[in-house]
């Protein structure tokens, strides 16, 4: 589903975030990328989602070489990948409902069909009752779940989450991890990152440790 071959990523200014990462995530698999902050986890996820381009090596997603895709094709590919951003990237002048509806509006979904899907996604993350709420009125955990609802509203085959348990307390973190596990159970390929291995300790999934932009070990749990 996702295949990295000797991928490097260098940012302007010389920072080398990834140094020759080779990694394969099979269809329907769930993989946790662990490592300290600055290890290159976010970069790896962004490359997998087509949000950034690799400086070297190849990134294949669903058989497509992202390096050879044009900007428009890359944007269209992003519609098939759900991404949960570390900083949520919510629109604070729109209701929860409208935030979740954004990816569908971009695709030109019929209104009623879109509303049905938005409500299904909100129900999935337990925010159906808050659909009219503005993001500022939501707690940190609720904002996180709203971001997940937006990521799954397009029913993607791949779900990528950058530090989804980041600054949540243990109970919230467990609920979020369980949520991802439930997507994994229904066949969605899940790729998530965390700097706190304890929060994913309960998950039965492969862990890939990243340090200084390189893969340390790839062990099954």
């Amino acid at each position: 589903m996702i295949r990295f071959s000797a991928v490097t990523k260098r940012y302007p200014g010389g920072l080398e975030a990834l140094r020759g990462v080779t990694l394969e995530v099979a269809e329907g698999e769930m993989v946790a990328i662990t490592g300290h902050s600055g290890a290159g986890k976010s970069t790896l996820l962004k490359l997998a989602a087509g949000l950034e381009r690799a400086s070297g090596g190849t990134v294949l997603v669903q058989g497509q070489n992202l390096g050879s895709l044009g900007e428009a094709s890359l944007a269209v590919l992003r519609r098939r990948i759900g991404f949960v951003f570390q900083d949520h990237k919510l629109l604070y002048d729109r209701s929860a409902f409208e935030n979740v509806a954004l990816p569908l509006r971009i695709c030109g979904f019929p209104r009623e069909e879109a509303a049905r899907r938005v409500r299904a996604a909100l129900a999935k993350v337990g925010l159906l009752a808050r659909e009219k709420a503005m993001p500022v009125a939501l707690s940190g955990g609720e904002q996180q779940r709203l971001c997940i609802a937006r990521a799954i509203v397009n029913r993607p085959m791949v779900l990528i989450a950058d530090e989804p348990t980041g600054n949540l307390d243990a109970d919230y973190a467990r609920a979020i991890v369980d949520l991802f596990d439930s997507f994994h159970q229904v066949g969605v390929t899940v790729l998530l990152s965390t700097h706190d291995e304890a929060s994913v300790a309960r998950l039965r999934c492969r862990r890939v440790a990243l340090a200084a932009g390189a893969v340390l070990k790839a062990a099954a749990a």
């Binding site: 949000l51 900007e71 428009a72 944007a75 269209v76 590919l77 992003r78 519609r79 991404f83 951003f85 990237k89 919510l90 629109l91 604070y92 954004l102 990816p103 971009i106 695709c107 937006r150 397009n154």
Partner: peptide, 16 residues
């Protein structure tokens, strides 16, 4: 600007 950025992140093309 925020709306444009988020739209692009979730799959909006330049034309969109």
């Amino acid at each position: 600007r925020d709306e444009i950025e988020v739209s692009q992140l979730v799959g909006a093309t330049a034309a969109d």
